[in-house]
Design a protein around this nucleic acid. Structure first.
Lengths: 128, 128
DNA sequence: GTTTATGCAAATTCTTTGCAATACT
DNA sequence: AGTATTGCAAAGAATTTGCATAAAC
């Protein structure tokens, strides 16, 4: 479970706190979410932590319909090339639906598809 | 073709220029794109133009994998509730694939899906 | 001891708001 | 004429950069 060491990164408080929070929440989070949840750490440090985690593939960007970028843990279970995310219009959380099979798309052959990112927007079970 | 009058909006230079540019390009555009393409108009005016067009459903947001929000013309042909967009990693343009049928997803019934936004990332025919 | 991460300050960039001048119908 | 839109200035957020201190290995 030591994601940090496994990625060749130093184990620091901030990094462990960020990973812990992602694990605890299990939803996609924006920088602002972390800033609010972990006020012990500097905004800038959190930006840098996210950037570092992206570089080391610990996180991936979640496509969202708002202006803010969200991130989610890259679990090995995920196929990195077809994400399905659900964004709840009520509670504004975005979750990765790893269990859902993303349908394959057929495009004209001139297109070369690298990844597929499906965002479903609606009301989640909790807010229902 | 008078989208403005049809939407009950005044025909101004800036608005016509913005619509013209969307029509000319045929891809999803961010505020920054317009700012660069139409330097005659003020940043602020362009922000407000985009906002107005969104309110009047002339444009819709395009979900993108970058940090910037992009917009595309809402043609009547589009089903507004399941967009398919293609983002090219080479030229960084995002186009709406109106012709492509988005596959319907089946989710646990507790989810209430309002809209479906599929972003395909890859290399477009032009950059191939 | 050496290297890397952190916190603070400050610089940039992005977006929004207020208001007077201008353009549209 | 009357109303909505524009441009400018300036405020407010969000993000990035530089550098000295502190923590990790």
């Amino acid at each position: 479970m030591d994601l940090l060491q496994h990625a060749g990164l130093r184990r620091t408080r901030c990094r462990e706190a960020v990973i812990g929070y992602f694990l605890e929440k299990g939803v996609a989070l924006a920088h602002a979410d972390l800033e609010q949840a972990l006020p012990a750490y500097d905004r800038v440090t959190l930006y840098r932590t996210l950037a570092t985690f992206m570089e080391h593939q610990l996180l991936h960007k979640v496509v969202d319909d708002g202006a803010v970028v969200k991130y989610a843990l890259s679990e090995t279970a995920h196929e990195h090339h077809h994400h399905v995310h659900f964004k709840c219009v009520q509670c504004q959380t975005t979750t990765c639906l790893a269990e859902v099979e993303a349908p394959r798309m057929s495009l004209p052959p001139a297109y070369e598809v690298h990844e597929q990112n499906l965002l479903l927007v609606g009301v989640c079970p909790t807010c229902h």
